[in-house]
Amino acid sequence: MEFSIFGILAVVLELFRPLLLPMGLVVVADLLLFGAVIGRHRRLNLRAGVRTSLIIGAVAAVATAFYLPAWTGADLSQLSSMIDYAGIIGGAIGVGVAIGLLSYPPVQLLMRRPA
């Protein structure tokens, strides 16, 4: 059976449908904070902010990799094929990137350039 990108996105939408409103609120809040980051960028320690968000994203990715099988009722010993591991790694990267991006604006706003 063939799948289109539109079909895949439709399935992903259904997966997150129960969470759309809270996710939307989080994204809107994050965008507003990002706007504040842009507005105040000269007063912020950008390098520290980016580094910290990267670390947060990496930690989230590693945690996801270990938790993902349990989230489905499986355990790590049941990962048996390259596809299983690719799925875990792909999912972990996806979550890590998302968490890293979402955490950046609030983290950055807390990291000001020394006076």
């Binding site: 079909g7 399935v11 992903v12 259904e14 989230w71 048996s80 094929s81 799925g87």
Partner: peptide, 29 residues
């Protein structure tokens, strides 16, 4: 591989196929 028990098809069954089913009801897949 359809002849090899793996986690990935279990993930599809346990997490994704319900969403695919709902997308089918909405005429999107």
């Amino acid at each position: 591989n359809p002849f090899e028990p793996q986690w990935a098809p279990w993930f599809l069954k346990e997490r994704m196929l319900h969403a695919a089913y709902n997308a089918m009801l909405r005429g999107r897949v």
